[in-house]
């Protein structure tokens, strides 16, 4: 598994559209966000939905700007995402 992320890290979510169960909402796919906080370690929901035990992996609160998700809106949306859903983009400037 890849390195875990830290608060402030910028990440991009996976664009893959799986045929089965996933906990990466469609509106948050392929979007750039920022790690807020680690929220524990858990087996991937995709595995458990298939009855597989799965290896625990980090889960994070990831903050997105509404404009980056929907093209409009001045709010933020924080989604809780497994590490497998995320790829690194470097550290935020702010």
């Amino acid at each position: 598994m890849s390195e875990s992320f830290s608060p402030g890290d910028r990440v991009r979510t996976r664009t893959l559209d799986p045929a089965g169960h996933t906990r990466l909402p469609r509106y948050a796919r392929g979007a750039v966000g920022e790690i807020v906080e680690r929220a524990g370690d858990h087996p991937l929901a995709e595995d458990r939905a298939r009855g597989l035990p799965g290896e625990p992996q980090p889960v994070y609160h990831v903050r997105f700007r509404a404009g980056d998700l929907f093209g409009s809106g001045d709010h933020a949306v924080t989604v809780e995402l497994w590490q497998d859903y995320l790829e690194p983009l470097g550290t935020a400037a702010r």
Partner: peptide, 30 residues
């Protein structure tokens, strides 16, 4: 997730424009 201000208005909550809104989607284990 798309329009929290619109939802809040339906609930009778009118926040000043400079109050930032954060929506938390309970998509995992918390």
């Amino acid at each position: 997730v798309r329009d929290p201000r619109g939802i809040l208005a339906e609930f009778g909550v009118d926040l000043p424009a400079d109050v930032r809104i954060t929506v938390w989607d309970a998509s995992a284990e918390s």
